[in-house]
Simulated scan of single mutants.
Amino acid sequence: MMGSEDDMKSRYGWIEIDHVRYDHDVIIHTDRSVSKRSKKKSKKLKNSYGHTPLADHELSFLDDECPPVIYIGTGQYGDLPITTESHGILRHFETFIRPTPEILTLIEDESRSFAAVIHVSC
């Protein structure tokens, strides 16, 4: 279970969770399982945002999981854009949006159930 400094770490292009390295963006679910962030549909918005943004359809899992808190890791340098529609969804939750290294520090101290979307590059 996550919660110590050794359980989560990242650098540009990867994140390690519970000693498993992921070379792609991930979603950490309320049951602590990890899945790949599916950003295929969001790629069509890349020209408008400069990067592939976090779009509202990517947050549909929140309807089922209803976490008390959500963490959004915006990348090593904080460059992940978030659509207006996504901000509208996140407004209904206690949400922390920060560069990925800062989010990992916050998650380490989190005792509540949570969900997280973690961008691993920019």
Rank of each mutant, 00 (worst) to 15 (best):
Y22D: 00
M8S: 10
R11V: 10
M2T: 13
I107L: 00
H92S: 15
G3L: 06
I89V: 13
L59W: 02
H19E: 13
G3P: 11
G88L: 06
D79L: 13
K44I: 14
I15Q: 03
A116R: 04
K44F: 05
I118L: 15
V20P: 06
H24G: 04
L59G: 03
S33I: 09
E85K: 15
N47S: 11
K43T: 05
K36F: 08
G75N: 04
T84W: 10
P101H: 09
D31R: 05
S33R: 15
G88W: 07
H119L: 08
L59I: 06
E108Y: 00
P68R: 05
G73V: 02
H57Q: 12
H92W: 04
S4R: 14
K39F: 11
S113G: 05
K39S: 13
M2S: 00
I103D: 01
R11C: 11
Y49Q: 06
E5V: 13
R98W: 03
S48K: 15
A115N: 09
D7P: 01
Y77I: 07
L90S: 08
E108D: 10
L104N: 04
H29G: 03
E94C: 07
E110C: 13
R91C: 03
I70A: 07
D63R: 15
I97G: 09
E110P: 05
H119I: 10
I28Q: 05
